[in-house]
Design a protein around this nucleic acid. Sequence first.
DNA 1: GTCAGTGCAAAGCTTTTGCAGCGCG
DNA 2: CGCGCTGCAAAAGCTTTGCACTGAC
Lengths: 162, 162
Amino acid sequence: MRMRISLTFTMGILRAKVCRVTWTETALDSLRSGGHRHGSARRAVIELLGAEACCASAQEIHDRLRSGGASIGIASVYRALELLEAAGLVQRLDMAGDVAMYERVDPSQHHHHLVCTDCGRVEAFVDERLESALRKAESRVGFDIEAHEVVLRGACDDCRID
Amino acid sequence: MRMRISLTFTMGILRAKVCRVTWTETALDSLRSGGHRHGSARRAVIELLGAEACCASAQEIHDRLRSGGASIGIASVYRALELLEAAGLVQRLDMAGDVAMYERVDPSQHHHHLVCTDCGRVEAFVDERLESALRKAESRVGFDIEAHEVVLRGACDDCRID
DNA sequence: GTCAGTGCAAAGCTTTTGCAGCGCG
DNA sequence: CGCGCTGCAAAAGCTTTGCACTGAC
């Protein structure tokens, strides 16, 4: 059991490291190809999202970058996110209701979300059998589906009282 | 083919009629049991949602009620929706990003949503096999899942150019 | 008659837009 | 060295709150 946890942990670190480099570079290259320059604000947002495992709100991104010493404006965060979303590099998710969440689009790390009904915490989960069922359902509805989102709501481990 | 459409249509009408009465009365009774009175605004929102097949925004509900002659305030719409959501009678959905959508919770009409990436139109769909897969995935994640939401995004029939 | 419910108006939030100046290429 | 990007501030929504008054029970 401990071995399995340890292995999962190591794999997580490796995968995160690989993906951080890959997605960040992909995003920077993709925007440059589109004729965009790399200002300090946009680059900072891209690097943060590349290092971030799961979704974050615009406010969280802004706060984190300012804590890191950058004098970035919230408007630049929103503009960077808008551009990245239009380029298909970032996905906007509305789970919390009042604020939008953003996360990088990375096919190798496709996942969905668990939202705690008590504390609001968001966790990612991967389930290949659910993906398969989604693909089948998508072909059944007859539309050309480009994307899908699944949110499961319930009490998280910390909030549940057994 | 025509027969099938006709049958589906008839069933839809019947089901909608049955559910309108049922959900509306359930909601009114439920709130009364909770010690709430039935003011004109709250009753109007409940009756509209009971008659509504799928989700609507607070603004749409407000506009529709005012078009119908009621002098209801937008604040009362939000307050009614908040109360209904807390009672588990209404579900708040964030699909459009900028505005929240609300729809009645009716186990007999459980469904998910298709959102057009072009025009933003929302359509409901029912897929029992997907529901089954979701239930299995929910048991796999280990949480006590209370609710789930699925959104499929793609071009709707009107916006798709074959 | 009491007090929950209501409409209006003002405030609070998140997000967008305007604008002058900086700095990437 | 031009024009795209940026930070700040103001504006623009959506949603919530304050308040006096109405009407349900």
